[in-house]
Computed example of a mutant assay.
Amino acid sequence: MPAAVIFDMDGLIFDTETLYQQAFLAAARRGGHDLPATVIQGAIGVPWAQSRSVILAHAGPDFPIDSYFALMVSHFDLLAATELRLKPGVVELLDLLDALAMPRCIATSSGHETVRSHLLAHGLVDRFHAVVGHGDYATGKPSPDPFLMAAHRLGVAPAACLALEDSHNGVRSASAAGMMTLMVPDLLQPTPEIRSLCTGVVSDLHEVCALILAASVADVTE
């Protein structure tokens, strides 16, 4: 039974990864850039510095990366304003954690302004006890820093935290922090390496609810 739950945000709480993919592709078309979908997928769900490296490694050092990113962000903001959706089971899981009085935190590569905007759009600002975002840690995922900071903010030992992640680097980060880790796949499916780092792989957050509820019942009966 975990003592706290640490959530990733993009692709885990919000269905943003598909929106980012659309925004990256739209910016490429708008700028007349030849960026394959595989390159774009490698630039999603990672810190900006890593996204830059992925794109520049394919397109070369002369690629206008700053203007491209500005155009991508503009496209993403337009999409998010009307198409930002919650992933299945988010509200139900938060309700269960409330009932169990279990603290929770977001650990994300996104900035605080973006996190707050997304949470406000769905009335979730007060449903998390803390947010760890870009700028709160020395090194981003797959480093354990974001998850270690989240555990610190909640005052819970990392080993007592359950981390929920959809990305490979997120799983690596949470596992390196010593947390129980469940992968909830979004755009990426688990590889053998990722499965070896996970406590389990589940289909959605409804399944996470069922696991936590079962653990809480077992904890009481013992």
Rank of each mutant, 00 (worst) to 15 (best):
73 V>C: 00
15 D>T: 05
206 H>N: 10
6 I>A: 02
73 V>D: 11
118 H>N: 15
161 C>W: 03
207 E>C: 11
162 L>N: 03
217 V>D: 04
37 A>I: 10
215 A>S: 10
61 P>G: 05
179 M>P: 13
185 P>A: 05
174 A>L: 06
49 A>P: 01
139 T>Y: 00
51 S>W: 02
115 V>G: 03
178 G>T: 12
101 A>N: 13
174 A>V: 07
27 A>C: 09
80 A>V: 13
10 D>L: 09
59 A>R: 14
25 L>Y: 02
78 L>R: 15
113 E>F: 01
204 D>S: 10
75 H>C: 14
148 L>V: 08
54 V>H: 03
130 A>K: 08
156 V>S: 08
86 L>D: 04
14 F>N: 07
134 H>Y: 01
126 D>T: 15
23 A>L: 05
57 A>H: 07
148 L>N: 01
39 V>A: 07
169 N>V: 14
155 G>C: 03
203 S>W: 04
146 P>M: 09
94 L>G: 07
40 I>V: 15
12 L>D: 04
187 L>G: 01
184 V>R: 03
24 F>Y: 13
27 A>Q: 06
185 P>N: 00
60 G>C: 07
37 A>Q: 06
164 L>Q: 11
123 G>L: 03
152 H>M: 14
128 F>A: 02
19 L>M: 01
127 R>W: 09
212 I>V: 14
72 M>G: 08
190 P>Q: 03
112 H>K: 11
157 A>Y: 03
129 H>Q: 13
143 S>W: 00
215 A>D: 11
35 L>T: 03
101 A>S: 14
61 P>C: 06
205 L>Y: 03
1 M>I: 09
66 D>I: 11
71 L>D: 14
98 D>T: 09
53 S>N: 14
217 V>C: 01
163 A>P: 06
90 V>K: 05
186 D>N: 10
104 R>C: 08
64 P>I: 05
157 A>R: 08
94 L>D: 05
139 T>F: 07
48 W>D: 12
16 T>Q: 03
107 A>W: 09
120 L>E: 14
213 L>I: 02
4 A>H: 08
128 F>V: 00
193 E>D: 08
54 V>G: 01
174 A>C: 05
178 G>P: 14
27 A>K: 04
41 Q>V: 15
25 L>H: 05
164 L>R: 11
60 G>V: 06
10 D>Y: 02
106 I>C: 04
42 G>T: 00
102 M>N: 07
169 N>H: 13
152 H>R: 15
148 L>D: 00
35 L>A: 02
152 H>A: 15
169 N>W: 04
103 P>T: 14
32 G>F: 11
187 L>K: 00
34 D>L: 14
183 M>A: 04
57 A>G: 04
95 D>W: 00
176 A>L: 02
94 L>Q: 03
156 V>I: 15
48 W>R: 12
122 H>R: 09
18 T>A: 10
210 A>W: 09
106 I>W: 02
161 C>N: 06
119 L>D: 13
31 G>N: 02
152 H>W: 12
92 E>P: 12
11 G>D: 02
205 L>D: 06
43 A>I: 14
32 G>Y: 06
9 M>P: 09
82 T>R: 10
